[in-house]
Structure formats: C-alpha cells, structure tokens
C-alpha cells in the first residue's frame, strides 16, 4: 500500500513537471509576450501578432514536443521489456535508420518537396522494422535475433545515408538538422499526423501493461501463466514501432529520449509496468518540452536542435545510470 502511494505520488510529480514544462514552453521565446496576452490568445480574444505567434508557432510546437516525448518514451519502455534488453530503444528495431534514409533521400534529392518528408520517413521506418522482423524470424521471434538483425539492417541503411550525403554534399545542411532531430517549424499538421498514434499507443500500452509484467518473468514462466508469448511480443513490438515511427518521421532522429526516459522512470517507480508506462510517458513529455524550450531560448537568437541538447545531457546521465545499475 505504501509502495503504491509512493509510486502514485511520483507519477503526479512527473505530471506537475510536464505541466510546468508546457507552460514554460509557451511563455518562453524570442518575443516577450505577457501572460495576460497569452491567455487572451488561447481564448481567441486577443487577435494581434502575438496571438499568431502563440497559436501558430508556440502552442503547436509544444504539443508536438509532448506527443514526441510520449511516443518515444513509451516505445523505449515497451521495447526494453519485449527485447529483455535494458539498452533497447527505437533504434534497435530499425525505426531510426529507416526513417533516416527515407527522410534524407527526400531532403537531398527532392528538396522542393519537403512536405513528403514525414509520410515517406514514416513508411521508411515501418519498412525497416518489418524487414528486421522478417530477417529475425526463424520458428518464432527471439530478442537476440532481432537485436542482431537490427544492427545489420541499420548499418546497411546507414551506408545509404552516408552515400546520399556525399553525392549531395552541397545540400547537406537540411539533412544534418534531420539527423540530429529538432522541433523547429513543427506545427498543427504534424500534431494531426501524430496524435492518433499517440492515442492508440497509449491505450494499447496500458492494456498490455500486465502482459509485459508477465513477460519479464521469462518466456517459459509466461507461457505457463497462460500468456501467448509470441503473439504478445509481436503486437507489442508493432505498437512500439508505430509510436516511434510517427515521432521520428516528424522530428527526425531524436535520440536518447526512448533510451533514457524509461530508465529514469524505472529508477523512481520500479519495474511494474502498470506504473512504469504512464510514468515514462509523462516524464517523456516533460523532458522533451523542457529540453526544446531550453534549446530554443538558451542561445537566442540561434536556435539549437533539441537533439543536440538531448545528447549533451542524455549521454552523461546514461553513463550515470549504467554505473549505478551495473
């Protein structure tokens, strides 16, 4: 009971942090807008330039940050359990390399058709994930085979990315932004593209939480307890793939969120996925919104892609976690 209330309190604290991050992200920016005007803008009673800034730039960008944070963190949390590997994240199932190659192909070869980046990157991510699955299939799915197939496919696609960047070295700047991952100029169309996946992913992840708990006991025990292990693993991987693909195709190859946020959440709420999944989702939303806001305003007027900030803080934090846990 004690444990239960402790975990609930931590999740509520995460939610408060996410809410604070949301407000921070809307208030902070290169143009100073008083709080009263922000409120009027959201009400729709303001009507000036500031309303446009709030409603067309900051609010949608913040919402995209929230969705990206939720999607990547949930995806990572699910994959870490399904692959029985604490280092698993959306990269491992080829999402990043698939989205990366597809997105960069569009950015470099068809620079005038940049609206194609998101849908094509999504298709690329899913194609890479399916490809890894097929390669890893041999009388069922074993996590080790997925991880190995993932490494091989990612290396293969990475070669394609490098080749494109060499052939089109004059246009590499836009590709670099995509490789690092950033939220610059993300707006309502991106929100519209992502939220159905977030909703679906959150629902399926919460329904699957108890099955994930059982899966963590090992395949034989899980089967003995009546879990359809193969089917569960395939469905959960598919959910994780959809979540990550929808996020990555919008913001580029934003790393570390899917790896670090679930770990940080696990340190605080433990391994029970009924708590870990909501905690990861909420913490992910908080981390991405706050990081993006800092990346946006810290070096104003230059805007840093949030991916750089995530890596700068994420990598040392990850090492800290590793030293603590292993």
């Amino acid at each position: 009971m004690n444990d239960l209330s402790k975990r609930t309190i931590i999740i509520i604290l995460f939610a408060a942090l996410a809410f604070a991050g949301f407000i921070f992200s809307i208030v902070a920016g290169s143009v100073d807008i008083p709080l009263a005007e922000i409120w009027q803008s959201i009400n729709g009673t303001h009507g000036g330039v500031h309303e446009k800034i709030i409603m067309n730039i900051r609010l949608p960008r913040t919402v995209v940050a929230v969705l990206v944070g939720i999607n990547l963190s949930l995806s990572g949390a699910i994959l870490q359990a399904v692959m029985k590997n604490p280092l698993a994240d959306p990269h491992i199932i080829g999402i990043s390399s698939g989205a990366g190659l597809a997105g960069i192909a569009i950015l470099l070869m068809l620079p005038d058709e940049s609206w194609l980046v998101t849908p094509v990157a999504f298709l690329g991510a899913m194609a890479a994930a399916v490809c890894i699955y097929i390669l890893a299939w041999k009388n069922g799915i074993r996590p080790v085979r997925i991880i190995l197939a993932g490494v091989a496919v990612s290396a293969f696609l990475g070669a394609g990315i490098s080749a494109l960047m060499i052939f089109y070295s004059d246009r590499v700047h836009s590709a670099l932004m995509w490789m690092v991952g950033g939220l610059s100029a993300r707006s309502w169309p991106h929100v519209e593209m992502m939220w159905p996946y977030t909703l679906l992913g959150v629902l399926l992840a919460l329904i699957g939480a108890r099955s994930i708990n059982i899966l963590q006991l090992g395949d034989d025990i899980a089967k003995g307890l009546g879990l359809r292990v193969e089917l569960t693993r395939i469905l959960l991987t598919a959910v994780a793939a959809l979540l990550a693909a929808s996020a990555v195709s919008v913001v580029g190859l934003l790393g570390f969120v899917g790896l670090i946020v679930p770990h940080a959440a696990r340190l605080m709420v433990g391994t029970d996925y009924r708590f870990l999944l909501p905690a990861s989702a909420i913490l992910g939303a908080a981390v991405v919104t706050i990081s993006d806001t800092i990346a946006r305003v810290a070096f104003s007027p230059v805007e840093l892609p949030v991916g750089i900030l995530m890596a700068v803080f994420g990598a040392p934090f990850f090492l800290f976690l590793l030293r603590r846990e292993l």
Binding site: G218, D220, I221, G224, T271
Partner: peptide, 12 residues
C-alpha cells in the same frame, strides 16, 4: 509449470 531458470524482477 516452474522451469529451472526463472528471472526475478528486482523490486517485486
């Protein structure tokens, strides 16, 4: 069924 090897989650 209790197999020989089982994984115990660290905090259960």
């Amino acid at each position: 069924v209790l197999p020989q090897s089982s994984v115990t989650p660290s905090d259960i």
